[in-house]
Computed example of a mutant assay.
Amino acid sequence: MTASTTPETVPGSDLPPAAYRMTSHEILALLAFEPGAGTALTRRVLGLAELPDDHDLVRAGVGTLNIRDTVEINGEEVTLLAEAKVLARIFSTSSEWFDITRIGSQYASPSYLVDSPAGRAAVFLRPLSEYLCLPLRDDVDLFDFVQAQVDEAVATLGSEGGGIVTSRRYSVRTQEPVVANIKIHEAGPHQLASAPLDEDGQLGVRDLEPAEQPGLVVRGLLAAAS
């Protein structure tokens, strides 16, 4: 996936031409078609780990892909086409995921970044388990994207009375994700929760200084895990 997408691009009314909508059962179908070293990581990050490859949702996903003309069916043989083929390769070979979730008083808005030898993409979860997938250029720095997403989420929640921005970095090399969360208060300093853990095994919490940029702080913590 090499279409031009910048870190500032987010889902909205004017979607880039390269944007591609998928449902969770379509993603399950893609992972069942091309299992690879990153399949388990993708399932884990997207909350699909408990569903087997032969689940009814997988068969439903194939049917939806067929309606979208992104599979070719020849007898018993089914072949992925176009965006479905590219995304299947990215998801099944994923080496790293970032999860930046904005949690307000009445909603949660997750967004993801996936990196793999086959390419990279931004994935936004929308209502009714619909995922909006956006291709990223090869020269886009994923940490630039993370920083921009965190700052945008903090600013939005700050104008809505507060909330939490959770940030996680997952890797095929490690069992546990790196976590850096920002709690946004309507009044008073924002708070950062991150490693090291305190004596009760919880993330350590500290107030952010007024001059500290939340996105830059989170970027530094997640990047340090490289």
Score class of each variant (00 low, 15 high):
residue 124 F to L: 05
residue 174 T to C: 07
residue 106 Q to D: 13
residue 183 K to S: 11
residue 159 S to P: 00
residue 109 S to H: 04
residue 170 Y to R: 05
residue 111 S to W: 06
residue 170 Y to I: 15
residue 147 Q to A: 11
residue 135 P to S: 13
residue 143 F to H: 14
residue 139 D to Q: 14
residue 184 I to A: 01
residue 179 V to D: 05
residue 105 S to T: 09
residue 159 S to D: 14
residue 142 L to F: 15
residue 169 R to Q: 04
residue 165 V to Q: 09
residue 129 S to P: 04
residue 179 V to Q: 10
residue 108 A to V: 12
residue 180 A to Q: 06
residue 115 D to F: 00
residue 164 I to W: 08
residue 144 D to V: 14
residue 112 Y to W: 08
residue 142 L to K: 14
residue 110 P to N: 04
residue 183 K to V: 15
residue 133 C to L: 14
residue 170 Y to V: 15
residue 123 V to H: 02
residue 144 D to P: 06
residue 127 P to E: 05
residue 120 R to G: 03
residue 108 A to C: 01
residue 184 I to L: 13
residue 132 L to S: 05
residue 146 V to G: 11
residue 118 A to C: 07
residue 161 G to C: 10
residue 168 R to H: 02
residue 129 S to K: 11
residue 139 D to L: 02
residue 182 I to Q: 01
residue 134 L to C: 08
residue 143 F to V: 12
residue 146 V to H: 10
residue 172 V to T: 15
residue 129 S to F: 08
residue 179 V to G: 04
residue 182 I to G: 00
residue 169 R to K: 13
residue 182 I to D: 09
residue 137 R to M: 05
residue 107 Y to L: 12
residue 164 I to R: 09
residue 114 V to M: 00
residue 136 L to Q: 10
residue 129 S to M: 07
residue 113 L to K: 00
residue 178 V to Y: 02
residue 171 S to I: 11
residue 144 D to L: 15
residue 152 E to S: 11
residue 179 V to I: 15
residue 141 D to R: 06
residue 183 K to C: 04
residue 163 G to Q: 08
residue 178 V to E: 09
residue 116 S to W: 00
residue 141 D to S: 12
residue 131 Y to S: 07
residue 173 R to Y: 04
residue 177 P to Y: 04
residue 147 Q to C: 03
residue 115 D to W: 06
residue 129 S to R: 13
residue 176 E to M: 13
residue 119 G to T: 01
residue 125 L to R: 06
residue 167 S to L: 08
residue 178 V to I: 14
residue 157 L to I: 09
residue 112 Y to H: 03
residue 126 R to L: 15
